[in-house]
């Protein structure tokens, strides 16, 4: 089992309780509480919006637009979801809105990688671009919604139900977005399958894997 960065369920529960208290204080215009909340969310919102938007130059604005809504609307939080789900949902809407304004939705982007490229071609591409750029190109080629699901699952440790709340869609849509994102990435990045064993060996070196 991969231990995600969000920690155990107990950690997350404790964190959420603390954040509900912070949010109640923010609702009374407590700037210190707001700063505490900002400190907690700045790194994860920056990473999430960075992956969602693929526009590093717009991330800071999107993070602050999100946190401005938190400042304005803290009093409307009713506790029906976790604070992290609520804030991430705001970030998702802000990110999508900014992309939409700029007509940069990935569905409209030209593919950087040929979906039909074979293993040999991919290997050549990795040599030419470097692994990071190659993967980044793959991520550019899936939709923002699919990247959002990948980010929230693999890096933020959200359940599929929480992701459905964040993105305001049915849980089955979350599952199928993930399924299609995986399938598309595997097609776009065929060397992934070939390098699987080597990478898995690296993975098992650093994290606990359940057999």
């Amino acid at each position: 089992m991969i231990r995600n960065k969000a920690g155990t369920a107990a950690d997350r529960g404790q964190r959420d309780q603390q954040e509900v208290i912070l949010l109640e204080r923010v609702a009374t215009r407590d700037k210190h509480a707001f700063e505490q909340l900002y400190v907690r969310y700045h790194p994860q919102l920056s990473r999430y919006l960075g992956r969602l938007m693929r526009r590093p130059d717009m991330v800071e604005e999107a993070v602050n637009d999100t946190m401005l809504v938190v400042w304005e609307k803290a009093g409307t939080f009713e506790g029906r979801s976790k604070v992290s789900t609520w804030i991430t949902g705001i970030a998702y809407l802000k990110g999508i809105k900014m992309l939409d304004k700029l007509r940069l939705m990935p569905e409209q982007n030209a593919l950087d990688i040929d979906e039909q490229a074979g293993l040999e071609e991919s290997t050549n591409l990795i040599s030419r671009l470097g692994l990071e750029e190659w993967i980044a190109s793959g991520l550019d080629s899936i939709s923002a919604d699919q990247r959002s699901v990948i980010e929230l699952t693999y890096f933020s440790g959200f359940s599929y139900q929480e992701i459905a709340e964040v993105m305001d869609c049915p849980v089955n849509t979350v599952k199928t977005r993930m399924f299609h994102a995986r399938r598309r990435l595997q097609r776009l990045l065929p060397a992934l399958s070939d390098s699987r064993l080597a990478v898995a060996a690296d993975l098992n070196d650093g994290v606990e894997v359940e057999q």
Binding site: P43, E60, A136, I150, Q186, L192
Partner: peptide, 19 residues
Amino acid sequence: DEMQAMQLLVSSTETETNE
């Protein structure tokens, strides 16, 4: 196994965040 590999690969493209 493929998903674990994909997660590792995608995490290698960590977006730059201002600390």
